[in-house]
Design a protein around this nucleic acid. Structure first.
Length: 345
DNA sequence: CAGCCGTGGAT
DNA sequence: TATCCAAGGCT
C-alpha cells in the first residue's frame, strides 16, 4: 500500500525540480518571472510542443519585448509572425489580450486572468502561480497523466476534473507554487511520459499507486476517439513576375481564421468542375495534389497553377510575395504549384 | 458538452 | 503508414 499524494510528495518533487528541471527561455533562475514572458509562453504552449514554441518565443520577444510593444503591433504583422504555429485563434486572442492589459499590467490573480480572451482554467492558474506566486493548483495534460497514475484514476481525467484538482491541492507546498507547477509538468514531460514512464527514477514513486504495481501504462484512461472526416478541394496557384503570388484572406473566425490562402473551392466533396472555382481564366497546369492533416479532418487538395505576364487585379484576392509566412497548409499548396511552374533540373 | 481548432515529431 | 499526442480554449 502506498501513501496517497500529500505535501511531502510535493516537496520531494520540488527538490527533484531544483536538480533536474528543464532550462527554458521563459524561465528565470530565481524569484518571479516576467508576467509578459510567462503569459506569452503559456499561450504558445497550448497544445504545442516546447520544441515548436522556442523559436517563435525567441522571435516574438526580440521583436516585441513588452506587452505594450505587442499591443501596438499591426494585426497582419502578428498573424504573419504566428504563421506555422497553428491554432490561429490564439494569435487573435493574444493581441486582444495585449491591448486590454497594456499600460496597466496583467491582472495578478487566477480569477481575474481567467477573464482575458484565450486564457482558460489552465493558463490563468499557470500564470498566477508562475508569475505572481499565487498558491493555486495548475492542471494541464501532464498533470492529468501524473495524477491519473498516482491515484490509479479509473476514468478519463477530463471527466474527473475535481478529483484531479484535489489531488494536486493535496500535494501543493506552502511555498513556491510556480516552481511546483512547473515541476509537475517537467515530471510529466521527462519521467512520467505517456508511453515509456521511467518509474524507477521517479522522485515521487513512493506515493504512486500505479508505480507500486507496475500499471503506469494503464493510465490515464482514454476517451473513445472520434471518427475523422475526409475533405477534398481545389486550389489555384497563380504566379507573376517579381516572385508574386495571388492569395486571399480567409474569414476572421473558424479554420485558419484570418490567414492567407491560395484561391479555390470550399472543402468537402470532390468538386465536379474544378475550374468553376478558378479565380480567373488562364492556361492551367496540373500540379498534383497535397494532403494535410487537421485535428478533426484529413484534407486533399488538387493544385492547378498558371503563370501570368504581370500581376493583374483579381476580385477578392491580392498579390503577395511568395515568401510571405503563411499557414503550413498554404505553404504546401504554394510550394507544389510554384515547383510545377519552375521545375527543378 | 462534444466538436471544433494546426502542426510536427515520436513511435 | 497509422496513430498518438503536446503547458487548452471556445461554443
Amino acid at each position: 500500500m502506498t501513501t496517497a499524494p500529500n505535501q511531502s510528495a510535493g516537496m520531494a518533487l520540488l527538490e527533484w525540480y531544483d536538480r533536474h528541471g528543464r532550462s527554458l527561455p521563459w524561465r528565470t533562475r530565481q524569484g518571479e518571472a516576467e508576467p509578459y514572458r510567462v503569459w506569452l509562453s503559456e499561450i504558445m504552449l497550448q497544445q504545442t510542443t516546447v520544441a515548436a514554441v522556442i523559436p517563435y518565443f525567441e522571435r516574438f520577444t526580440a521583436r516585441w519585448p513588452t506587452v505594450e510593444a505587442l499591443a501596438a503591433a499591426e494585426d497582419d504583422d502578428l498573424m504573419t509572425a504566428w504563421a506555422g504555429l497553428g491554432y490561429y485563434a490564439r494569435a487573435r486572442n493574444l493581441l486582444a489580450c495585449a491591448r486590454t492589459v497594456a499600460g496597466q499590467g496583467f491582472p495578478r490573480t487566477a480569477d481575474s486572468l481567467r477573464q482575458l480572451p484565450g486564457v482558460g482554467a489552465y493558463t490563468s492558474s499557470a500564470v498566477a502561480a508562475i508569475a505572481f506566486g499565487e498558491r493555486v493548483p495548475v492542471v494541464d495534460g501532464n498533470v492529468e497523466r501524473v495524477v491519473s497514475r498516482l491515484i490509479k484514476l479509473g476514468v478519463p481525467p477530463k471527466t474527473a476534473v475535481a478529483t484531479v484538482t484535489e489531488a494536486v491541492e493535496a500535494m501543493l507546498p506552502d511555498e513556491r507554487p510556480g516552481d511546483f507547477a512547473q515541476a509537475m509538468m517537467d515530471l510529466g514531460a521527462t519521467i512520467c511520459t505517456p508511453k515509456s514512464p521511467a518509474c524507477g527514477i521517479c522522485p515521487i514513486r513512493g506515493w504512486c499507486a500505479a508505480a507500486a504495481d507496475g500499471s503506469a501504462l494503464d493510465y490515464p484512461k482514454k476517451l473513445p476517439k472520434r471518427a475523422k472526416k475526409t475533405w477534398h478541394g481545389v486550389s489555384f496557384v497563380v504566379a507573376a513576375p517579381g516572385g508574386r503570388v495571388l492569395m486571399r484572406k480567409r474569414p476572421p473566425k473558424g479554420l485558419l481564421g484570418g490567414m492567407l490562402e491560395a484561391p479555390g473551392s470550399a472543402w468537402g466533396e470532390i468538386p465536379d468542375n474544378p475550374f468553376a472555382h478558378a479565380p480567373l481564366a488562364a492556361r492551367w497546369s496540373e500540379a498534383g495534389s497535397i494532403n494535410h492533416v487537421f485535428t478533426h479532418a484529413d484534407l486533399t487538395l488538387s493544385v492547378f497553377t498558371a503563370q501570368l505576364p504581370r500581376p493583374m487585379p483579381v476580385k477578392g484576392c491580392e498579390w503577395y510575395c511568395a515568401q510571405t509566412p503563411v499557414a503550413t497548409l498554404t505553404r504546401k499548396v504554394l510550394t507544389r504549384g510554384l515547383a510545377t511552374l519552375t521545375p527543378e533540373p
